[in-house]
């Protein structure tokens, strides 16, 4: 985290960096939390004495799939927001 070392020379930039970093961490943490919840549900319906090879494969595939779904949702949602914003702009704003 040495990017923050610039704080004394330029507090504004340092603060921006810090805010961005914290936002990114929160976002990642939330993604991981949800992904874990859903993939555990899917891949480990009956927890055994240890994690089997098959369960592990399922989990890594599920992870990738969940991230793919997240990206698909993000694209669709942001596209929709932009469309609605453009429509609102044409009709004279909200």
């Amino acid at each position: 985290m040495d990017a923050l070392g610039a704080s004394s020379s330029d507090p504004k930039t340092a603060l921006m960096l810090q805010v961005r970093q914290e936002a990114a961490i929160t976002n990642a943490r939330q993604l991981i939390e949800k992904l874990n919840e859903h993939c555990f549900d899917k891949c480990i319906p009956k927890p055994g004495a240890s994690l089997s090879k098959g369960e592990e494969t399922c989990f890594t595939q599920c992870m990738e799939k969940y991230m793919g779904a997240w990206n698909a949702v993000s694209r669709q949602y942001i596209g929709r927001l932009q469309k609605e914003q453009a429509a609102a702009g044409l009709s004279g704003g909200l």
Partner: peptide, 29 residues
């Protein structure tokens, strides 16, 4: 941005349950 990301998280949560109903058979949607 954070509010939008929050909505994306909750939508992914909802839509995953609705749309990914089968077994996981690969890493791609």
């Amino acid at each position: 941005k954070a509010r939008i990301q929050q909505s994306v998280h909750s939508l992914t949560d909802i839509c995953w349950t609705k749309c990914i109903t089968g077994k996981i058979a690969g890493g791609k949607l």
